[in-house]
Design a protein around this nucleic acid. Structure first.
Ligand code: SF4
Ligand code: SF4
Lengths: 152, 152
DNA sequence: TGTAATTCCGACAGAAACGGTCGTATACTG
DNA sequence: CAGTATACGACCGTTTCTGTCGGAATTACA
C-alpha cells in the first residue's frame, strides 16, 4: 500500500533530531537510536545510506557520528525517501524485474504518472526543517481540489 | 514503499474501463480481464470487493457483470484504494498489530499525519472520470510548493 | 427443467518486500 | 595500543502481496 517504510520513517526522525541539535558537531547512531526507541544497528545502516547519498556527513572514531551535510531547510523528505527506499514510483510499471507487463496496453499509466509527480512534488516541498517546526494543524484538505487542478 | 498495490491498480483500470463503456449495461470480470492482461480470477475478487464497498453494482447470471454504482465523476481514486487496500496511512502508527511502538515519544508523527492528509486529499480529488480523459501533461510540480504551503 | 454464464467466498501457496540482527572490517582519537 | 565509532555485507524470520483453486449461489434462457 501507499505506506512509507519504517526505514524511511526512522531516517526522517533521525534527520530531524540532527537538525534540532546543531550545537553538537556530531551525534552517533546510538545517540539517536536511544533518544527514540529505534534499533541501533538498523538505524546505523540507514544513516550510512544517507551518508552515501550525500545527505549526511559522517566521522568515525571517538566523538564521531553524523551531522547534516546541508542545512535542514534544503533537505527534502523526498530526498530522504529516495535515498532509503530507492526510486519513487507509486505504480509498478518501473521496468526491471517484478515490473508490470501491461505497460503496453495499459491506459491509466499516463494519468497515474501525473499523480506520481504530484505526490513527489508534495514530498519535495517538505523539508527537514518543516518537520522540526510544529505549526498548528490548520484547515488543509479543503484546498486539495484546487491544488490538484493545477497539476493534473 | 509509497507504492500502490497492483490490486488497486487493477481496480482503477477496471473502473475506468467500465466508465468508458456506458452503453453496455454490465461487463463481466472476464471481459475486463481480457481487455487488458489482468488475471481473471484476481480481478474478479477485486470487483467483488468494490461491489461490497458500494462502488459497483453487480448482477449474477448470464449477461451479468458489473457496472458503476455512481457516475464516474463522483468516484474518487481514494475510495477505490480505500476499498481494496484498506485504510490509508503512509505511516505505520495506525495502532493495532504490527503497528509502531514509538508513538509515544515520536516527534514526527504529527507532521507526517499532515502529509498523510495532503496526499489523501490529492487522491480524493481524482475521479475515475479524470483517469478516462487524457489531457496534456502540463507544467505541474512547479506549483507544489505553494500547494503544500496551504496544507502544511 | 436443465444448462451455461457469472458472481460470490474462503483457503491456500509462492514470491517478494520488510524489519531486524550479526559478524567483521575499517577508521579515528587519545 | 585500546576504545569508540562508522562501514559493509550476509543472513533470517515475518508480513504483505499476488495469484490460484475449488466450490457454492444466482440468473438467464432454451
Ligand atoms: S502499466 Fe498500468 S497496470 Fe502496469 S503498473 Fe503501470 S499503471 Fe499499473
Ligand atoms: S509513530 Fe513515529 S515512528 Fe512510529 S510510525 Fe508513526 S511516525 Fe513513524
Amino acid at each position: 500500500m501507499l505506506k512509507l517504510t519504517k526505514k524511511a520513517d526512522y531516517g526522517l526522525m533521525a534527520l530531524k533530531f540532527l537538525a534540532e541539535h546543531p550545537e553538537r558537531s556530531a551525534l552517533s547512531a546510538k545517540d539517536v537510536a536511544d533518544a527514540y526507541g529505534i534499533p541501533a544497528q538498523l538505524l546505523a545502516k540507514i544513516l550510512q545510506q544517507l551518508t552515501r547519498s550525500g545527505l549526511l556527513r559522517s566521522h568515525a572514531g571517538m566523538n564521531g557520528g553524523y551531522a547534516l551535510a546541508r542545512e535542514a531547510r534544503s533537505i527534502s523528505a523526498y530526498e530522504v525517501i529516495l535515498s532509503i527506499d530507492g526510486p519513487f514510483f507509486i505504480t509498478s510499471c518501473t521496468k526491471g524485474k517484478t515490473g508490470c507487463e501491461l505497460t503496453t496496453n495499459c491506459t491509466i499509466k499516463e494519468p497515474l504518472a501525473r499523480v506520481n509527480e504530484t505526490i513527489a512534488g508534495v514530498l519535495k516541498s517538505i523539508s527537514i526543517q518543516d518537520l522540526a517546526e510544529h505549526e498548528q494543524p490548520a484547515a488543509r484538505e479543503r484546498n486539495a481540489r484546487e491544488l490538484v487542478a493545477l497539476t493534473l
